[in-house]
């Protein structure tokens, strides 16, 4: 088949909501965009383990400690599922990790903010995971089969993350004066970065249209952001706390909440490496990978030795 004919068949499948599978013909740009999107998402899961792992050893009760370990462990799993989905597009996990470590690949800039108090575990669960879920649920219907299947698994597991986060905040909001302060402070620090998680405004997001045509993005950044703001503005009432946006008001005409202007200057800066923790996060990842090199090598060497010994034994039998 000629390239234009291939392209037509491909787009036709997507329009009919037929999934694209690894060995199917696909435009090179589709493959590349998917690799970028999926690996960025995987990197975000892996780097995202760090700010929360930061509090595992200081979790204030055994129940919280167990829950937090399980949650961070899930994130490792999510990173793994996503790397595996990307690996079906002819790129290895090593190569993707190399891109992360060299700074060539990006990850969600939210994880470059520090976790300063225990309440941050609550705020991350409620706001950051909440925003992530908004983004991820529609991707369960993404056009690329392995990606959509990974997202289904991830969304199933994510549901407990947001709930545990909100519960942490709920307990703090009903606690001592110091705990309520801690709660409000965490919400104040995590609100705007969470709102920015949806990415630039639609008019500044040139690739959105193509990605939507390919159905690897199902709603625009601003649509998802609006949905997140609407939901959060209601949920905060249960906590008796406030969101740090004086311009946040219900708009009767639009039937949505209006919100204040987003500081895109900060967003770009954090994205470009000037966030409070960019360097620490990357250093921690690179170190873990480097420290693990001898372990991975030894495991492989051992299995080679084992295989060699077995084949010698087999020859002995024959």
């Amino acid at each position: 088949m000629s390239a234009p004919a291939n392209e037509a068949v491909f787009q036709d499948k997507i329009d009919q909501d037929i999934r694209i599978e690894p060995k199917d013909w696909m435009p090179e740009a589709y493959r590349k965009t998917l690799i970028r999107q999926i690996s960025q998402h995987a990197h975000s899961e892996i780097v995202g383990m760090l700010p929360e792992a930061n509090w595992i050893t200081r979790a204030p009760s055994l129940k919280r400690k167990a829950t937090l370990i399980a949650k961070v462990q899930d994130e490792a799993g999510h990173g793994l599922y996503l790397y595996a989905a990307a690996e079906t597009l002819d790129i290895s996990r090593d190569e993707m990790i190399g891109q992360l470590h060299s700074g060539k690949a990006k990850y969600s800039s939210i994880f470059n903010y520090p976790t300063l108090t225990w309440a941050d575990m609550g705020a991350i669960g409620w706001l950051v995971d909440g925003a992530a879920i908004m983004n991820q649920v529609p991707l369960c219907r993404a056009s690329y089969g392995p990606y959509a299947r990974a997202m289904v698994r991830i969304c199933k597991e994510e549901s407990f993350h947001q709930r545990q986060g909100f519960e942490i905040l709920l307990v703090l909001s009903r606690g001592s004066e110091a705990q309520r302060r801690m709660c409000q402070d965490a919400i104040d620090r995590w609100w705007w970065p969470s709102v920015m998680m949806f990415g630039p405004n639609d008019d500044a997001s040139p690739n959105t249209a193509q990605s939507m045509r390919w159905k690897i993005k199902r709603f625009t950044n601003d649509e998802l952001r609006q949905r997140f703001v609407d939901v959060s503005a209601e949920q905060i009432k249960l906590l008796g706390m406030t969101l740090p946006d004086p311009a946040l008001v219900w708009n009767e005409t639009r039937q949505h909440y209006d919100h204040g202007p987003i500081d895109w200057e900060e967003f770009r800066n954090v994205l470009n490496g000037n966030g409070p923790c960019n360097k620490e996060r990357m250093a921690a990842r690179v170190q873990a990978h480097a420290d693990g090199a001898w372990v991975r090598e030894a495991a492989l060497e051992h299995s080679r030795k084992n295989a060699a010994r077995q084949s010698v034994q087999l020859e002995g039998v024959a």
Binding site: A76, A284, D291, V295
Partner: peptide, 19 residues
């Protein structure tokens, strides 16, 4: 063991030790 969570030599083993 939980001090390793997020810092294991490879994702699969990070998950194993966290378990």
């Amino acid at each position: 063991n939980s001090e390793w969570t997020g810092h294991g030599p490879i994702l699969e083993q990070d998950i194993a030790l966290s378990n």
